[in-house]
Structures are given as C-alpha cells and as structure tokens.
C-alpha cells in the first residue's frame, strides 16, 4: 500500500491505496465521484478526462499515487445542478449529448481547450482538439457547436 494525498475539487483527501490503483478508479471507487467515466480503458476514448494541476489528462492512464500532491478537478468540481458551468450549460442548450456517457470527458477536454486556445474557437480547431474524445451517439456536430458556444460563454465569467 502507498499513501497518497491530493486536493480533489478543492478538498484535501488522503488515502492508502494499492499502487496499481488508477486515478479513475481512485476517484470512482474510493471517493465515489462517479462522474468520471471509464469507457475504453485504453486511453482512446477520453470519457475519463480530468484536470490535474489545471491540465487535461486521461485518468485511466495515470496512477493515483503519481498524483500525490496534485490538485485534481473532476466534472463534479466545475458546477452544480443549480449553477452549471458555462460549458455544461452550452452542452445542454446545444443538445451536445445523447446518452451522456462521453459528456464529462468532453466537457473537461473542452474547458482545457478554452484554457489553452481562448474563447474564439473555430470548428476546425475544436474538431482537431477533440481528437482524444470519442462519442458514439452524436456524430460530433452538436458537440462542436456546444464547445464553441461554451467557450464564448466562459469569457463572460
């Protein structure tokens, strides 16, 4: 077992974990933050994307112990049902989801795109930047619209 301490959504957590515990497993099974999804488990699909120290990463391909001392933000940490993050609101308004499985990862990746590329995002940029997130329902069209709208809305916050 190995001790790990990290800040998750603003709260410090410390736990003893088997070193092979993946960050995704730690978030879901130890902290019960089940908004982070595991789709492919082979770092293709992006359903598990969270932010570690402000950068998007695939939590199914990161050890929890390697995040010792880091600050982790999950989908639960960005908004509440009554007060959605602008990117969440944009996904709802633009019908950017159908089954919703990929949505947490899409939104965490989208926020990362805005952090790096700014609030005016063209379609080509969004599609390129979403290379690591797979949706099997929507055909991406409304996701791309949602990300562009969410990016603009984030400028007002």
């Amino acid at each position: 077992m190995a001790s790990v301490t990290m800040i998750v959504n603003g709260k410090e957590v410390t736990a003893n974990v088997d070193p092979r515990t993946l960050l995704a497993q730690f978030l879901r099974e130890h902290l019960h933050l089940t908004g982070t999804h595991v789709g492919c488990d082979t770092s293709q699909c992006g359903a598990c994307v969270v932010h570690v120290d402000g950068r998007s990463i695939k939590s199914c391909t990161t050890l929890a112990v390697a995040c010792d001392g880091a600050s982790v933000t999950t989908i639960e940490g960005i908004g509440t049902p009554d007060n959605l993050h602008p990117m969440q609101a944009a996904f709802r308004e633009n019908h950017g989801l159908q089954c919703g499985f990929c949505t947490p990862g899409m939104i965490m990746s989208a926020i990362d795109i805005v952090n790096r590329k700014g609030h005016k995002l063209d379609e080509h940029t969004i599609r390129e930047e979403l290379e690591g997130n797979i949706c099997r329902c929507t055909g991406y069209h409304n996701i791309v619209k949602a990300v562009a709208a969410g990016a603009e809305a984030m400028a007002g916050k």
Binding site: V49, R55, S56, D112
Partner: peptide
C-alpha cells in the same frame, strides 16, 4: 503526438 490529454502526460 497522441491527443491533447496524452500530450499533457
């Protein structure tokens, strides 16, 4: 290389 999240690690 890879995708943005992979490039961050």
């Amino acid at each position: 290389i890879g995708d943005p999240a992979v490039r961050n690690r």
